[in-house]
Amino acid sequence: MNIFRFAGDMTHLISVLVLLLKIYATKSCSGISLKTQELYALVFLTRYLDLLTDFISIYNTVMKLIFIASSLAIVWCMRVHPIVRRSYDKDLDTFRHYFLVAASFILALLVNEKFGFQEVFWAFSIYLEAVAILPQLVLLQRSGNVDNLTGHYIFFLGAYRALYILNWIYRYFMETHFSRWIACIAGLVQTALYADFFYYYYISWKNKAKLQLPA
């Protein structure tokens, strides 16, 4: 475990905590895409199939359980919680995310490290995570105004995979037979999707202004 990877995991954890804080503190999920949250729940459920078969470390197991539980809790809040669900922007959250699921699964069948049940689902989760933020970014463009916590949530969510890229570069040079091409390329695509958000997030931070995305 290197510092980049640990920082990435902590940043990812912070993003989840910020989102839970937003929903809990404001009892509202306005500005949050339920479709993106459903895609993340699917990403974790398909990526951590090895939870019961491969024990890596306590840290690894605990973090996997946290990500699975928190993503399911957020989807539950947005779908079922009587107060929170009322603030869901149903008519703005219209991205057809089933295409993302289908495309990721087809790609996983074609491009994977090994054609096995767990490996195909692992590759599927990697490809799906790379594009899972799209419904959220589209919703953000449409709703225009972004509350602070939502802005911070998306920032940390984008930053975590950028730190993972540094982790892969580090491991590439430090470990002899390290090759995670699937995760690395998908991670680059994933981080690139945040590029314009990062720009507007930086501008709002520099000008101490509210985060505004051009409509």
Binding site: R5, D9, H12, R47, D50, D54, I56, N60, M63, K64, F67, E113, K114, W122, Y164, N167, H177, R180, A183
Partner: peptide, 10 residues
């Protein structure tokens, strides 16, 4: 060996 093809990252 076995450890290599385990996905040790989250």
């Amino acid at each position: 060996d076995k450890d290599d093809d385990k996905h040790d990252e989250l």
